[in-house]
Design a binder for these strands. Structure first.
Lengths: 191, 191
DNA sequence: TAGTTTGCCTAAACACTTTAGGCAGCATAC
DNA sequence: GTATGCTGCCTAAAGTGTTTAGGCAAACTA
């Protein structure tokens, strides 16, 4: 019985690759075992359950994404930063659809709090430093930013823009122009 | 063998209810059979497969939503229409989380084209009539609108805003204010 | 080298999906 | 009012995924 050298890390990484290939919903403990040419039960020493595996893949994706965003934002400000920020998500979703889907998995509150999720919020907030938005409006502005980026990327991934012209790649820069314009002219809060 | 009177319509409606109760991912032919107190195999005369069932639930949800949006938009224009439009989606997602998730199912191109999906696009486009946006910018504007609404609602549903103040219900009106402001001051396309 | 840990195994129970083939309830035709 | 046929729900069975219990051998540790 040759030992293959399974570890949680290897399993999670392979699971993420599998997700990118066949879709996050298709990631299964069985499929992962096949990929390592190992019996299914063997994985259960490393991973508690199918749900646990998926959660770990989600955490990996969130980390990777946060690292990429942090890199992209370094040394940029204003629209430059905004565009870089948004493109990281969109490019990642295209290059790693399974991982991106994983990053959208509903985590339970404690897990979510310990994940890279909050880092994403902070990074988004950092972009606002390049714009003149009152502190009190930062939360809604960050949420809008996240909504637009996630919304566009996810509708695009779901084929929502596939059957109308022009191509979704063409309208994307316009979306960013609009977002930049909005942040430059953020409306005053009503009295 | 008392006949229960299964029909595709009853199954799909019950499936949608089930989705709202336990989550769309948990909707299963078996669970549906249990709900009708009928053997699993019996459902397969009405529904081709589990995938078929889910697709039909998705189509139902898209129809319901489009009808609600159409109703809400009747007799409204400008920001009034925008707010009504966005609220339909958000309220629907809160009241019917499973149906809303179903509406986001990836449909194959032909099915998607025959669904109420295109109606959603048309309804969103109708909102722009209340704003002064050049025809050539309608597509990006509609996509932005859809992205913000879907993005916010889906991040909210995923608990993305759950662990930061203020409550997501409080920032929502500000998001709509911002969206309205953006549509009123849509940036000119770069030369 | 002996003992302990630990990695991967076999075996088995349980759930969901899907197909094949059977029998009985119901509607129609006479 | 009975015969005929369709259809709805059934039983049976095979395939796949999840998960747990318990075993054997490989690899550290002394």
């Amino acid at each position: 019985m040759a030992r293959v050298g399974l570890t949680v890390e290897r399993l999670v990484r392979a699971g993420a690759d599998l997700a990118d290939e066949v879709g996050f919903d298709e990631v299964t403990v069985s499929a992962l075992a096949r990929r390592f040419d190992v019996k299914v039960a063997s994985l259960y020493s490393h991973v508690k359950s199918s749900r646990d595996l998926k959660t770990r893949i989600a955490l990996l994706a969130l980390e990777e994404l946060a690292d990429l965003v942090a890199d992209a934002l370094a040394g940029r400000a204003g629209k430059d930063a905004l565009v870089a920020f948004a493109n990281v998500y969109r490019d990642y979703a295209h290059a790693h659809p399974g991982r991106y889907a994983a990053a959208r998995l509903d985590l339970d509150p404690e897990t979510a709090a310990a994940s890279a999720g909050p880092r994403h919020t902070q990074l988004a907030a950092a972009i606002l430093r390049g714009y003149d938005i009152p502190e009190s409006e930062h939360v809604p502005a960050v949420r809008l930013l996240g909504s637009v980026v996630h919304g566009y990327v996810s509708l695009e991934a779901g084929g929502g823009f596939a059957h109308s012209a022009p191509d979704s790649a063409e309208t994307w820069p316009r979306i960013l122009d609009a977002l930049d314009a909005l942040l430059r002219n953020w409306p005053a809060a009503p009295s």
